[in-house]
Design a protein around this nucleic acid. Structure first.
Length: 387
DNA sequence: CAGGCGTGGGC
DNA sequence: TGCCCAAGCCT
């Protein structure tokens, strides 16, 4: 047996029983591939079942509101994946009658479908000989062939695709899907980033890195930049009916379109353009703020920390109460409630000069269970008993 | 092409 | 605790 046959043989005996390996539905396989981008298998499994139950085919996904789709993705992260998936589903309904095109060029042109996802779906769902090179495959080949190109570099990707393609071209059709998954499965179970299990590897006899003693050194990784720390503040403003003021983030960028606590800094930044009691931007169907005033809790704000891939937030949360009363303009209300209470050096919303008004709403408990929020906001609301 | 874009688990 | 990651894509 050559090394490719040994790998397939190993896969036959050691492959995991994963939900997306029990279906031939190209749509379901596609959904799993998108969810698995930069995300662990154990994390994905419950989302996979829920999402497919709610959106069983491209037509169902295309017909849903973005809010419901985002809610189905809540907690998974990288939320543009969900938007792209839905946008692609809509194109599939319009252009291809709701069927995933069994055509690499057409599928690849859909939003959110890159080289890896295209190759994975085409090979796994349609047995087309398209290479699918992800982080696992790069690592396996980097070690097996002793390639020292950095992870993610075009040269490593190109070589890995070429190596996979060379095998695909020699495989019978019924082994195409297995080949794609066998490479990744080896990376996930044996050829691990750290503490590789070379003693269990079906390719050990031919592995350059194992013979050279460079398994732990490969693949070469670039040094990571330091995470900036961003100081923020958030207003936990409730009224006498238990409603909570929420704010929707901009349509683009970090946590796009998701709901969170409004920022005192943002209110300060926008005080020239609206007043709290009169013209607060409000999406259709939500309740505008009534005239009243804010009473802020002057005790020390509680602090929450949230770490993203590329930055860290430290958020001071200020509990406050909205009560009916005299008309209070934003300038008066915000100036009064922040004076001596708000910390300095926090960062306003609308980074990079975008200061467009975003929708705010008084949310009921029911609203808060329905609206998509990120993990930090969920944690804050849970801490204060708001969900 | 380098950087933006989430989250939770392992060590 | 802090750091590294895990089945990428987009700009």
């Amino acid at each position: 047996m050559n090394w490719a046959q040994q790998l397939l043989h190993w896969y036959d005996a050691n492959k995991r029983d994963l939900p997306w390996r029990r279906t031939k539905d190209p749509y379901a396989i596609w959904v799993s591939e998108v969810m698995l981008q930069q995300t662990r298998v154990e994390t994905v499994i419950p989302y996979y079942h829920t999402f497919l139950g709610r959106f069983p085919d491209p037509a169902a996904l295309a017909a849903a509101s973005e809010e419901v789709v985002l809610k189905g993705w809540e907690g998974l992260g990288y939320y543009s994946r969900a938007r792209h998936l839905q946008a692609a589903a809509r194109q599939i309904v319009e252009r291809y009658g709701g069927q995933i095109p069994a055509d690499p060029d057409r599928f690849r042109s859909l939003p959110g479908v890159g080289p890896y996802t295209c190759g994975a779906v085409m090979s796994i769902a349609f047995a087309l000989p398209e290479p699918a090179v992800d982080g696992n495959v790069c690592r396996v080949f980097s070690r097996f062939f002793g390639w020292s190109d950095p992870v993610g570099s075009p040269s490593l990707l190109r070589q890995a695709r070429q190596a996979s393609q060379a095998q695909l071209d020699r495989l019978p059709r019924e082994r195409i899907a297995d080949w794609t998954q066998a490479l990744m499965e080896l990376g996930a179970l044996v050829c691990l980033p750290r503490s590789a299990r070379c003693e269990d590897c079906p390719l050990a006899a031919d592995c350059v890195a194992l013979q050279d003693g460079t398994v732990e050194a490969l693949p070469v990784r670039k040094a990571r930049k330091e995470n900036p720390v961003i100081r923020r503040d958030a207003l936990l403003l409730t009224d006498d009916q238990g409603r909570l003021l929420l704010h929707q983030r901009p349509e683009e960028g970090l946590l796009a379109g998701m709901w969170e606590l409004p920022s005192l800094e943002e209110m300060l930044a926008q005080q020239e353009t609206f007043s709290l009691g009169e013209t607060w931007s409000s999406p259709e169907g939500t309740r505008a703020l009534q005239k009243g005033q804010i009473v802020i809790d002057r005790s020390e704000p509680r602090q929450f920390r949230h770490v993203f891939t590329h930055l860290t937030w430290i958020v001071d949360v200020y509990p406050a109460r909205w009560s009916a009363g005299d008309v209070t303009t934003a300038r008066q209300a915000v100036t009064e409630m922040t004076e001596g209470a708000i910390r300095e050096n926090t960062t306003p919303y609308g980074e990079k000069g975008k200061t467009a008004l975003r929708p705010c709403m008084w949310s009921t408990s029911e609203d808060r269970s329905r609206l998509p929020m990120n993990r930090l906001t969920r944690n804050i609301l849970k801490h204060y008993g708001m969900i």
